[in-house]
Computed example of a mutant assay.
Amino acid sequence: MSSEHLDSARKFDVSRAGEYAEQSRIALAGYDACHELVACMLAASLGSGREARILVVGAGGTAQEILTAAALEPLWRFTAVDPSAPMLELAQASLQAQGLLARTRVFLGTVEELTDEPPYDAATLIGVLHHLPGDQAKHDILKAIATRLKPGAPLIVAGNHQAYASQPLLLAAWGERWRQQGASADAVRAKLGKILQGADPPHSEAAVQHLLQEAGFGTATRFFSSLFWGAWVASRSAV
């Protein structure tokens, strides 16, 4: 496992994993809507009612992308990958509660560590890129996903983009979002300080496009946006 992946995985320890489901829905206004649209975009890309194998990278925590997609498409099967054991355990519990473990392979590690197997029909990478420091780590994970997809297969990428400090109004609104949900003024200041120090998002939508194209994907289409967050779909190049 690379040092970048190890550092990112360590952030999601037992304490952070335990609060992830609640915190993520506050941090991302439209959390459930984004995941619903992810499932819809995959179904629109693959065709509804067909069997498909979906690679879910960074599935730990809620496993929401699997829960939502599985409800829409009962013939899909999933491989859930995450380097954080506490986060993956939470995902596995959610999948078990919904009766989805029979349709899901759970893999502790990185996508680069997946053994050779038939290429996947589609993949998702949600809430991961902005936790990887530097462009090289971002490129490496996207490239690793590309090599495990069929030519033309769709990839959903979702996460924060834009340097946080470069958008003070969005950052202030993000703080107000926490206050709206009951956080104290001190707690909001602490969260703003943490986000400024704890992540490295791509600095623009153009940077996301560039990373995808360098990794072997075509032009991405954005289908969801919420403050710093964006979600895109792109297809693996045919060659």
Rank of each mutant, 00 (worst) to 15 (best):
P133F: 00
L149S: 10
L170N: 14
L142I: 02
I145S: 06
A144F: 04
I156G: 05
L149W: 08
Q167I: 06
Q167T: 12
Q167L: 14
K150I: 01
Y164E: 04
K150E: 14
A163D: 15
A165W: 08
Q167K: 13
Q136W: 00
K143T: 07
G152Q: 08
H139L: 08
G134R: 04
L149C: 06
A137F: 00
I141D: 05
K143P: 02
L169Y: 09
P151T: 07
K138C: 01
I156Q: 09
A146D: 02
L155S: 12
A153G: 04
G159I: 10
G134C: 02
H161Y: 12
A165I: 08
P133S: 04
W174C: 01
L170A: 14
A137S: 13
T147H: 11
Y164F: 14
A163R: 15
A146I: 01
V157Q: 08
R148N: 09
A172H: 15
H139Y: 07
H139R: 11
L155G: 08
G134L: 01
K143S: 10
K138I: 00
Y164T: 05
K138M: 02
T147P: 00
S166I: 01
A146S: 15
W174F: 12
A165T: 07
L155Y: 05
A158Q: 11
T147N: 12
A144R: 03
Y164Q: 05
